[in-house]
Amino acid sequence: MGTLHVRVEQKKLERAAYVLKCVAHPVRISIIDLLEQQQRLTVTEMQHVLAIEQSLLSHHLTNMRDKGIVDTQRVGKNIHYYLTDTTITNIINCINGCNRF
C-alpha cells in the first residue's frame, strides 16, 4: 500500500464544507437545480415549479444570498436570482449519479 495523503488543499476543503452546509436542504438543492437549467429566475418562477409558499422560498433564497451562493439582479420591477458560482451545479450531477439515493 502506498503512502496516503490528503489530496485536496485545506482551503478548498473548508470552502467545500461551508458550501455543502449552506445547501444541505432539499429546497436549496432544488433551487440550484432550477438555476442550472435557467440562469436567472424570479421568486415567482421558482415558486411555480417548486410549489412551495413564497415566504419559505424567500427565506431559503435570502439565506443562500447571505452565504454567497446566489445573488440578485433587478430587471425592471423584477428581481432575478442567479448562481454566483456555477460549479456548485456539479452537486446535482453527483446526486443524480448516485444509485444509493
Rank of each mutant, 00 (worst) to 15 (best):
M1H: 14
T3Y: 14
T3C: 13
L4C: 02
H5P: 01
H5I: 01
R7T: 11
K11Y: 00
K12G: 00
K12V: 09
L13M: 12
E14C: 05
E14S: 12
E14H: 11
E14Y: 08
R15P: 05
A16K: 07
A17E: 14
A17D: 08
A17L: 11
A17P: 01
Y18R: 15
A24R: 11
H25T: 07
H25D: 14
H25R: 11
V27N: 01
R28N: 10
R28T: 05
I29K: 12
I31C: 09
I31H: 01
I32W: 02
I32G: 00
D33P: 03
D33N: 14
L35F: 12
E36A: 07
E36D: 13
E36T: 03
Q37G: 14
Q37A: 10
Q37W: 08
Q38V: 15
Q38A: 11
Q39E: 14
Q39L: 11
R40M: 09
L41S: 07
L41R: 00
T42A: 02
T42I: 03
T42S: 03
T42F: 02
V43I: 13
E45S: 08
H48K: 15
H48T: 12
V49G: 01
V49C: 04
V49N: 06
L50N: 05
L50M: 05
A51S: 04
A51F: 04
A51C: 04
I52C: 14
I52G: 10
E53P: 00
Q54V: 11
S55C: 08
L56C: 01
L56S: 13
L57M: 02
L57Q: 02
S58G: 13
S58H: 07
S58D: 12
H60M: 00
L61R: 00
T62P: 00
N63W: 03
N63C: 06
N63Y: 11
M64L: 15
M64E: 08
M64C: 03
R65L: 04
R65G: 05
R65T: 12
D66L: 15
K67R: 13
I69M: 07
I69G: 09
I69K: 05
I69P: 05
D71T: 12
T72R: 06
R74Y: 05
G76D: 09
G76P: 08
K77W: 07
K77A: 08
K77T: 06
N78R: 08
N78E: 08
N78Y: 09
I79S: 06
Y81C: 01
Y81V: 05
Y81H: 09
Y82K: 10
Y82Q: 12
T86A: 14
T87V: 15
I88E: 09
T89C: 15
N90H: 15
I95W: 04
I95D: 09
N96G: 07
G97S: 10
G97M: 08
N99P: 11
N99A: 14
R100K: 14
F101N: 10
F101A: 05
F101W: 09
F101P: 00
